[in-house]
Structure formats: C-alpha cells, structure tokens
Nucleic acid binder design. Structure first.
Length: 694
DNA sequence: AGGTCTGAATTTTTT
DNA sequence: ATTCAGACCT
C-alpha cells in the first residue's frame, strides 16, 4: 500500500560503544509489499491512525518531515512511529528521540511502553541538552573534557560573567555597561545562532555597540574560565558536542552508528546549532524524522528559527513531507478563528486544519474597562463554568508575560478559586536552593569557582574580595580545605567550620546523596535564618530537595539532572494539592505549548501588550507574536475568551492602549462574538466585584 | 582596604 | 524582586 519497495536494513545488533572495532556486516532483507510476510506487528496501525498519520508512522528509511498542525495527533504519531520501528526489528537502543523538555520525552516513552511493552526502555530519549550531556561525559575526553564536569545553569553563568567583569575592571566605565543577564543573553545568542559577537550586538543590541570591544574581551575571558574549571554552560553542551562530531571522525561515526534512527519533536523550535547537530549525527544514514508546526514557532528569543523547518528539505535532500491536518482537539468555531489568524502570516507551509466537531460556542472577544474589570470578568465566568459542570482543571488562563496575571491572581484568591501557576520562578532558581546545591557542587568539582564563590560569600565576614582571593588560592592547592583553615581574620572561624563540613562529605564517599544533603542542610540552616525572614517557607523547599535526592545513586547524577531537568512548580506553592486536586491553570503561553483545556482565557489581547510594543519595530518579531497568538487560541477545545482592557496607559511606550490586538483586525466579524461588560447598577465600588455583566 | 548597607533603577517569553 | 553603585562603617 503505502510502502515503497525500498530495501530495508534489519540490524544485526551492535550493543554498545565497545563494538566500534568489530566488523558488523549488514544483511539486507528486501521489504515485501504484503504486510503479512513482514515482521509481526502486534498493533493494527492502520486502524489506530488516520491515513496521514499512518503514512508518517510507516515511512521507510530516509529523511521525513512531518508538518503537524495544532491538535493533529503529533505526539500520537511520534509514539506510534517509535513503536513501529521497534516492531519492524530496529534495536530500541539505536533509536534517539529528541524532545523539547525531558518530561515530554518521558511521557512519550511511557506511551510507547504501553503499546509494545518494556522494549521501549532501551530507547534513548531526552532533550538536546541531556543527550549532549550524556555523550560528552562519555566522549568529551577527546576535547579535554573530564567526565566529572559541572553544568552551570543560566544563573551560574551570569555569576561567573559578573565575577570576570569586575576582575577585568569593566564596570567602572562612565557609560552604562550591560548587566550580567544581558551579557549572558548576548553570548548565548551568538552560540545558538552561529553568529559572531559583532553581528549579534549590532543587530539586536545596538545600544551597547560602544562596548563591543569590552564585550569581546569579557567573552574570551568567560570561555577560558569555563574551560579551565571544567564548567559547561547550557550552550557549551551543544557547542562542544558539535566540536566532538566535527573534529573527531572516529567518534562521529561511532555515535552516528549508535543512533541510526533519529526522531525530533518540536522541530520548529530548534536553533541553527541544533540543526547542525542533527545533520552531523545523521551523517551515516539520514534516517531523520522531524515533527513540528512552523506556525507554532515561538522561541526565537532563545535563538530558535522556524527557518530550520522551512529549509529541512534542502538540508536533507529527498525528504518526504507528510502533513497532518485533521484536528482532534477543538471545535470548528475555534479552528476558524485560528485559521484566520495564521492566514495572514507571509511565510508558512500551507495547511488547513479541519475537525469533525462542528458545533460549539463562538469564541468571545471581551472588552473590559480596565485591568481589574478584566480580572473580575474572568473570575466570574469561571464560577459560572464551574456551575455548568466544567471542572476547574479544564480551565486555563494564558498570558503573554507572567506578570500579566498579577491582578487576576488576587481576584481568584478573593473568590476562593484555587489555581496553579506555571512558568514563574522555578524551584531550582530560588536563592536558598542554589545555596545548598553550591555546597554539594564544590564537593564534586573542587575547581568550580562559581560555586565556591557563592559558598564563601555566605560565610560571615567574607565579601567579594576575600572570596576571590580564597578561590584563587584553592584552585592552586591540592587540598582546598587547608586554605580555608589557614585563613586568618574575622572570618577564620566560619571558614574552618565550612572546611569541616565539606571535608566530611569528601572523605566519606560512601554517603548517599540524601545523607550529604542532610549534612549541608544542618550547616546551612543558621545561615538561611539569618538571610531570609521568610525562612519557614524556604525550609520546605529544602525538604523537597531532600526528597528528590533519594532517587539518585550519586551526587554527580543528582546535580547534572537537576541542572538539566528542574522539577517544575514554583518555590512557594508547595501546597499539598488541595482536597480535590481541581485547580485552574495559570500559565504563560510559552509554557502552555502542547497542552489543551476545555476552556481557555487569553488575557491582555490588546495592541501594545500582545503584540507587545517591543515587537513593533521588526516584522520578524511581529510574526513571532502572531504565532504566539495562534498557539494560545489553539489550546482551547471548546470555550475561548479573548479579553482586552481598554484605556490602559503603558509606561514604557507612553501610549494609551485601547484597541484589540492587531491580529484580530482582519478576522471576519462572524467568527467571534463580542461582549461588552456593564456594571450592575451604578456601582463605583469595583472592589466589591459581584456586579453583573452582560 | 575591604565589607556591609542603603537607595535608586530596571523588568517578555525559557531548555 | 533583583541588580548595581555609592555612602558609610570596621
């Protein structure tokens, strides 16, 4: 049927990397047209999938591009393809599944497991960063990278940059120098978009063009400091893996032979660097299946480009393109709006989503007199929906930026509506969590200057200068603890106490991570109480950390995992998930990617907020905002409310915002209905908030 | 000289 | 809420 009679290679096994010298002869079995004579399939793929999905799942070897519209069963297709490959005789350990988050990799593999059983466990799945981490620990030696290297998260990278900036004396200039966060952003952009510093600065940070020279100097210092200390930031994981694949022919072949089938999810959100990695990983076979939706590319700020998905066919000549256009999520009225919004985009793979769910309420565009009126509308409507039987966890409120929901959060609490917030401050980024982890890190990697600095600054009487001197001395010595003890002055006592704790952890390496967390915790607790008035809440976070540590055999694994896959949930809401775990979801649109709800509210659909004024200058950024709107709208299954407050003064631009998002300008009027909010009676007291609207 | 404290200025989205 | 510079204290 959909088979082409291309030869299909059955793998005669190659278990591990130890086999690289052994000669493995492929024996080619011709693929037959009759499925009955092929490998025994336990699943009836044709029945479980629609025709488009089936074609993509059973695609033969070679590059394939699957354009999967929103809600078209993208994950389902990917999961079935993995299952299909395994059932066709591909060794699971030869399959590499790259996803956007580690969580989605886990979920997918779990679903594969549900289809075909435990064989799925040997599939290698994860994010680009986690796979790079794994490969570098094994093959990094060819570049002088020890397997015990430390991964720096964004915060660590910023701290190191700040440190070097002071050392180079760059902060005493009269002109304003970019802050550490901005500098890290610039450097990251360079790596991820494969552009030089000058190009990036002139292009996107032209107001800092004066500092180009200084930024270059600092960048070189940063690179050097990382290499010397065995520190890798997120970008290094990818950059260095590429270097391994480029410089070491043998390793490239070994790895490419290891992963003979590569599947990539969310391809529209990959950057140039990642595209190159895939190109190199697949050098020996071109068995690459990428899945994505160019209309949902929303990570350009992080260096991603939807050009990757547009240009895939030229990177992998002969690629077959499959399109999934049947939407299983939303009703037709919602899809009609979504289709009209994206229709205006100048560049895209043309596709037209359709659904069999023809009936449903029209999406509503709601004008509110101000931010608070908007909040009251949402809260009131949610109460109504709950009355109608919509469970709270089927309701989501999406915003462009996380602070857009501040006012609403207050209103929801006031109405007694429970909610969870996704995509705020991460657990792992909380200062106290980082403090505790820093202690563990110096134990694993005594070269880790950034963590040392953090640890030392917590000791009473130690400031930037002393910390720096100590770190410099410790890196030279074989026994860092000796340095701490021999330090004189006011901080002497604190430093030797620190040395005692850390040395204990180092010497007795048979301790479990849990026990090690415990010891540091005891030492750190007084410091925590001293620094933060709200320490009881923070203690709960540390307990959480303690629990996480239980599932790890060693510190190295624990720390690496934590840097790459931060547990979600913000620091403070540790709450034992209310009586019934029904909670409204409050989320940024970015962290709502791939999710769906019965009912979705999109807040601040006002021109100037969404699209934000920052994007007005460039067409590219505006188009990104449009796609973001498309993503937001297509999260809804049945109910959709777009709300916009009017007469809002925007400080940053000095504009009065009063018009709905420009993305709705060309949408036909019959596609949505318009609601105007009217106060019950003549109530001026908005604070009360139980007035009626129509 | 170096550490600590205060006050002023700045905020999109995040693996 | 966080970062950074400058004043003030040891």
């Amino acid at each position: 049927m959909l088979y082409s009679p291309t030869a299909h290679v059955l793998r005669l096994t190659a278990q591990s990397d130890a086999n690289m010298d052994r000669i493995i002869k492929p024996y080619i079995l011709k693929r037959t047209l009759d499925q009955n004579q092929g490998p025994k399939l336990s699943l009836d793929y044709a029945k479980e999938l629609n025709a488009q999905q089936y074609a993509a799942v059973t695609a033969v070897d070679g590059p394939a591009l699957v354009i999967a519209g929103a809600g078209s069963g993208k994950t389902r297709t990917l999961v079935h393809r993995v299952a299909y490959l395994i059932e066709s005789g591909v060794d699971p350990s030869h399959i590499l599944l790259l996803t956007f988050t580690r969580k989605s990799a886990e979920e997918m593999l779990e679903r594969v497991g549900a289809l075909i059983g435990s064989r799925s466990q040997r599939v290698c799945g994860g994010t680009f960063h986690s796979v790079a981490n794994m490969l570098l620990r094994r093959y990094g030696r060819v570049l002088g990278i020890e397997p015990g290297f430390t991964i720096m998260d964004r915060g660590d990278a910023e701290d190191l940059i700040a440190l070097l900036r002071v050392q180079l004396g760059l902060n005493e200039k009269d002109k304003r120098f970019p802050r550490k966060g901005t500098i890290a952003e610039i450097y990251s952009k360079c790596e991820n978009t494969l552009r030089g510093l000058e190009e990036v600065v002139l292009d996107e940070f032209s107001h800092f063009a004066d500092h180009l020279e200084a930024l270059g100097k600092l960048q070189r210092a940063y690179q050097l400091a990382k290499r010397q200390r065995q520190l890798l930031d997120y970008d290094d994981l990818l950059v260095l893996l590429r270097e391994v694949l480029t410089k070491d022919e043998q390793t490239r072949l070994t790895i490419s032979q290891q992963f003979r089938y590569i599947l990539v999810d969310e391809y529209q959100d990959t950057n140039r660097l990642q595209a190159e990695l895939i190109r190199k990983l697949a050098t020996t076979h071109d068995n690459v299946t990428v899945v994505g939706d160019d209309s949902q590319s929303i990570y350009a700020f992080r260096g991603a480009t939807f050009r990757n998905i547009m240009e895939f066919p030229s990177w992998f000549p002969g690629a077959t393109i499959y399109k999934l256009e049947e939407n299983y999520r939303s009703t037709q009225p919602i899809l009609s709006l979504a289709n009209e919004i994206i229709q205006e985009a100048p560049e895209k793979y043309t596709k037209h989503l359709f659904t069999r769910k023809l009936d449903g309420p029209l999406p509503a565009l709601v004008e509110a007199a101000g931010e608070h009126a908007q909040s009251r509308f949402v809260a009131q409507k949610i109460l109504e929906l709950r009355e109608e039987g919509v469970p709270l966890n089927e309701i989501a409120i999406l915003v462009r930026s996380s602070f857009h929901s501040f006012d609403l959060e207050i209103e929801l609490s006031r109405c007694g509506l429970p909610f969870v917030k996704r995509g705020g401050i991460k657990f792992i980024e909380a200062a106290h969590v980082k403090d505790l982890l820093a202690h563990l890190r110096v134990v694993v990697n005594p070269q880790d200057a950034v963590s040392w600095h953090r640890v030392l600054m917590l000791v009473e009487g130690v400031g930037p200068k002393k910390a720096q001197d100590l770190v410099a001395a410790m890196v030279r010595m074989t026994n860092p603890y000796q340095v701490l003890r021999s330090s004189s002055g006011r901080s002497g006592k604190g430093l030797s106490a620190l040395a005692d704790v850390l040395e204990n952890l180092t010497v007795s390496d048979d301790l479990s991570p849990t026990e090690q967390v415990n010891r540091v915790y005891e030492y750190y607790l007084p410091i925590l109480k001293d620094h933060h008035d709200d320490y009881p809440k923070r203690i709960r976070d540390l307990d959480h950390l303690h629990t996480i540590a239980e599932s790890y055999p060693g510190l190295t694994e624990f720390l690496a995992d934590l840097a790459l896959a931060p547990p979600d949930g913000s620091a403070s809401e540790v709450e034992p998930v209310g009586r019934d775990d029904e909670q409204v979801v409050l989320s940024t649109i970015h962290s709502a990617k791939g999710l769906e709800w019965q009912c979705v509210f999109v807040l601040w659909v006002v021109d100037g907020k969404f699209p934000s004024v920052f994007s007005f200058n460039s067409d590219e950024e505006l188009e990104e905002e449009r796609r973001l709107m498309y993503v937001a709208v297509t999260r809804a299954k049945r109910h959709l409310f777009l709300t916009y407050p009017i007469n809002v003064y925007d400080k940053s631009s000095g504009m009065l915002l009063s018009k709905p998002s420009r993305f709705l300008d060309h949408v036909s009027p019959q596609v949505f209905e318009t609601l105007a909010l009217i106060e019950e009676g003549h109530g001026h007291d908005w604070g009360r908030g139980y007035d009626r609207y129509i």
